[in-house]
């Protein structure tokens, strides 16, 4: 029997999953998925600082803290790349571990100073679905609506910018501001998902829906809708499993559910799946061997 609280939790996690699918698709296509990961790790010290300052769990305030250090983290990544010769992956690695380390140290301080507050803090590392409030649901919902509106209005602009940055710039689009907007939406998406999925697992919630959706379609619009659906399904199923077994942390379970969907897709998707590709390769070799295929036929097929 589902209680009122269970419905709140399911609604909230499904919105978090849907949002991660939507924004994660652009992040993955723009090769910014790991930036999302760094942002999540860099958000941890912010959460801890907010805990220390307020002394209790207040979601908007914690998210503000998370957003502050998260954005600071990705700004440092950009600065390191710009001012030194360190490449993106190394810069992301440095920022990710330093901020996460600082976050862990701060979380011990929180444990010492704030009595009884640590249970809430732990959920930011591995994720926890229980304890979501109706106000949290409203906050998560409004961020999803914001992301949906932005992508709905700027679909063509985001598509061009993500596909061909140089051409977009030559056509006069303010690519820097579009990038900033996408990063802002990514930051909001990550931060709002932190308490449910956890710092460590949030990158998977951004990447898995997009990567899974890509197997089933060659169209960006369809990919976005599929990624929203996959994000929602993995979040809801993961949350259901984790609330059923109290000792299961939500983040890892959600990620495992997503990995299962990804595995199914990578094997059985038409055309792009491993099975379909192996079969068509085998059929092709068979035709070559039997000599039923001429070069002209093959060229015509490729131009069809």
């Amino acid at each position: 029997m589902m209680t009122y609280n269970d419905w709140i939790v399911l609604g909230g996690t499904s919105l978090i999953g849907a949002n991660a699918g939507l924004i994660g698709t652009f992040a993955v296509l723009r090769r910014r998925a790991l930036t999302g990961d760094a942002l999540a790790h860099a958000a941890l010290p912010g959460v801890c600082l907010a805990f220390l300052l307020v002394g209790a769990r207040s979601l908007p305030f914690l998210l503000l803290g998370a957003l502050a250090t998260g954005v600071l983290g990705i700004t440092i990544i950009a600065a390191v790349q710009h001012w030194t010769r360190i490449k993106a992956d190394a810069a992301i690695g440095i920022v990710l571990s330093v901020f996460f380390g600082a976050g862990m140290v701060l979380s011990r301080l929180v444990q010492d100073r704030v009595s009884g507050g640590t249970a809430g803090l732990d959920s930011y590392i591995l994720g926890k679905t229980a304890g979501m409030l109706r106000e949290d649901l409203y906050l998560i919902g409004s961020i999803f609506v914001l992301c949906l509106c932005a992508v709905g209005l700027l679909y063509k602009e985001f598509k061009l910018h993500t596909f061909d940055h140089g051409f977009a710039q030559a056509q006069g689009w303010p690519v820097f501001r579009l990038d900033l907007l996408l990063m802002t939406l990514l930051a909001l998406t990550v931060v709002v998902g932190l308490s449910t999925v956890g710092v460590v697992m949030i990158a998977a919630l951004l990447i898995i829906p997009a990567a899974t959706a890509r197997f089933w379609t060659e169209r960006l619009g369809v990919m976005l809708l599929l990624a929203i659906a996959v994000g929602e399904i993995m979040a809801v199923v993961g949350a259901l499993i984790s609330t059923r077994y109290a000792y299961m942390p939500a983040g890892p379970v959600i990620v495992l559910v997503g990995t299962f969907l990804f595995g199914l897709s990578s094997l059985f998707a038409p055309r792009r799946g491993l099975v379909a590709r192996t079969l068509s390769e085998r059929a092709f070799r068979q035709r070559l061997r039997l000599g039923t295929l001429t070069l002209e036929e093959l060229e015509a097929e490729n131009n069809r």
């Binding site: 296509l29 598509k159 596909f163 369809v222």
Partner: peptide, 16 residues
């Protein structure tokens, strides 16, 4: 490998 069709790409020329 970006999920767009040939026509989608050509249409980008009209975006400006």
């Amino acid at each position: 490998d970006f999920p767009v069709s040939v026509l989608d790409v050509v249409l980008m020329g009209t975006y400006g």
